[in-house]
Design a protein around this nucleic acid. Structure first.
Lengths: 118, 118
DNA sequence: ACAATAAGGGAAAAATTTATCCCTATGCAA
DNA sequence: TTGCATAGGGATAAATTTTTCCCTTATTGT
């Protein structure tokens, strides 16, 4: 695994939440798991732009941060299911607020973002 | 400026808000500006772990995304002040929710994060 | 037999972000 | 007159994150 060279900041609530949510696909993973898409292959289909590899890595980090649990069924072909922990569930309203703001301002944001591309 | 090679995702609210908030110091910048720390030098003192350079870059991006405005006073030595736009102000409750979650779970998060370092 | 599905890890490359260093300009204070 | 504060840009290096590619295992469908 990659070892950080720049020391962490854990000074305030924003630092702390950043430590567990900062990652390109993490919020989406939590969201979809909450919606009931529990298996890795389902999640990969829900998030086709992410590489399989990163999803695995970020799922493992979410697990290490105790936001989700992983259940491995001893069958072949393999079956795995992720679920939110109670702790992870407390994040859902926060994530919902983020998504809501984005949805509420969809028009405006799209206009701004796209106009900056040219 | 750096030109993206991987196309953007703007499919849902989470993608959209990510587009404007994703950046190591952006949330902190918005927060401190909202608290009344408007000048670049003040912000740099509030966020000493960030390099001066990135703060400038991220401030510019926040401005381009219409979350803050920049006012330049034609004096020497130069004086600049940033303020939240009305649009930017609508993000404050969302950021507050993020920080609140981090604060509410400070103990637990610190324990988890630090235990993963060894 | 062969391809597809399921889950996931290693290695290396590519993409992206952040940090470091140096330079400009002007007025004020010691 | 040397040094600090103020604001900020260019170039380059370093750090970090994400992608790409390949490999393994065992069963089911064609």
């Amino acid at each position: 695994m990659y070892e950080k060279k720049i020391p962490l900041n854990l000074n305030c609530g924003l630092d702390l939440i950043g430590e567990v949510l900062y990652g390109k696909w993490k919020i989406r993973l939590l969201w979809f798991i909450n919606e009931g898409h529990k298996r890795p292959s389902e999640l990969q289909r829900k998030i086709p732009d992410a590489s399989r590899r990163v999803l695995n890595i970020q799922l493992k980090e979410l697990e290490e941060h105790e936001l989700i649990t992983k259940k491995i069924y001893p069958v072949v072909p393999p079956k795995v299911e992720y679920s939110l922990t109670d702790f992870g569930k407390t994040l859902i309203p926060v994530i919902a607020a983020l998504g809501q703001w984005g949805d509420d301002n969809e028009e405006r944001l799209k206009t701004i973002i796209l106009s900056l591309l040219k």
